[in-house]
Amino acid sequence: MSTRQYGTFVVIGSGSGIGNHVAYTFAVKGFSHIIPLARNDWTYNRVCFFNAARIVLGGLLESVETIEENFETTNIALYIVAQWAIPRLRALSASSAAAKSSLLVTNSLLYANPIPQLFSLSLVKAAQCSLVMSLAKTFNSSGIHIALVTVGGAVAPEKLESKKYC
């Protein structure tokens, strides 16, 4: 993913083909806000994808401030996003039988297998897992798919962009 940050990218015609692929490419290149617009049933599918985390090497007895900052980034921010997104996703799901809505949250295996050098991240990912599972138990029955996207290892940015678009 690009370290350079750009603004908003609006995709008019965001179907499952070119529109999605172009939006993905612009997101990888550093656009922080992607707004998909479409004219058909695709508009009934909305996904709120939460991928915020701080990865800081440290030890088991690192500063409380580091843990607090990581907790705010990974859990408090997710909680605020959930407060905003869930009523909207629930309303969308109730609007049509064709409507599909999801809140997806990236996580890792650190909640089950903590790494002492990533103690703070391990701690907040365990809390995040608990939050997402609680949200799922509460809201999945109302038509919102709430789930973790579990990453089982280090992410290599050079492998994320397997295709080049021009």
Score class of each variant (00 low, 15 high):
1 M>K: 08
3 T>I: 07
4 R>W: 01
4 R>I: 11
4 R>Y: 08
8 T>R: 11
10 V>C: 06
11 V>K: 05
11 V>R: 02
11 V>P: 06
13 G>V: 06
13 G>P: 13
14 S>V: 03
16 S>F: 12
17 G>W: 04
17 G>N: 10
20 N>S: 13
20 N>Q: 13
21 H>Y: 06
22 V>L: 14
22 V>M: 02
23 A>D: 01
23 A>Q: 03
27 A>M: 05
29 K>L: 12
33 H>E: 10
34 I>S: 04
36 P>M: 03
36 P>S: 09
36 P>C: 01
37 L>R: 10
37 L>Y: 13
37 L>C: 15
39 R>G: 03
39 R>T: 15
40 N>S: 12
41 D>S: 15
45 N>G: 04
46 R>M: 08
47 V>C: 14
47 V>W: 04
50 F>T: 03
51 N>A: 09
53 A>P: 04
60 L>H: 02
61 L>H: 09
65 E>K: 11
68 E>N: 15
69 E>L: 13
71 F>A: 09
72 E>R: 11
72 E>T: 11
73 T>N: 08
77 A>G: 07
78 L>H: 00
79 Y>E: 08
80 I>H: 15
82 A>K: 00
83 Q>Y: 03
84 W>Q: 09
89 L>Y: 01
89 L>N: 04
89 L>T: 00
93 S>P: 06
97 A>T: 15
98 A>R: 12
98 A>V: 00
98 A>E: 11
100 K>L: 07
105 V>Y: 00
108 S>R: 00
112 A>I: 02
114 P>H: 03
115 I>C: 02
118 L>G: 03
119 F>K: 07
122 S>I: 01
124 V>Y: 02
124 V>T: 13
125 K>V: 00
127 A>T: 06
128 Q>H: 01
129 C>Q: 15
131 L>C: 07
132 V>L: 05
133 M>R: 15
134 S>N: 08
137 K>Y: 12
137 K>Q: 12
137 K>V: 06
138 T>Y: 05
140 N>V: 04
140 N>R: 10
142 S>N: 08
142 S>G: 07
143 G>T: 08
146 I>C: 05
147 A>P: 05
148 L>C: 09
149 V>N: 04
150 T>H: 00
152 G>P: 09
153 G>H: 00
155 V>D: 03
156 A>F: 13
156 A>G: 01
162 S>W: 13
163 K>Y: 14
163 K>V: 15
164 K>Y: 11
165 Y>I: 13
165 Y>G: 03
165 Y>C: 07
166 C>F: 09
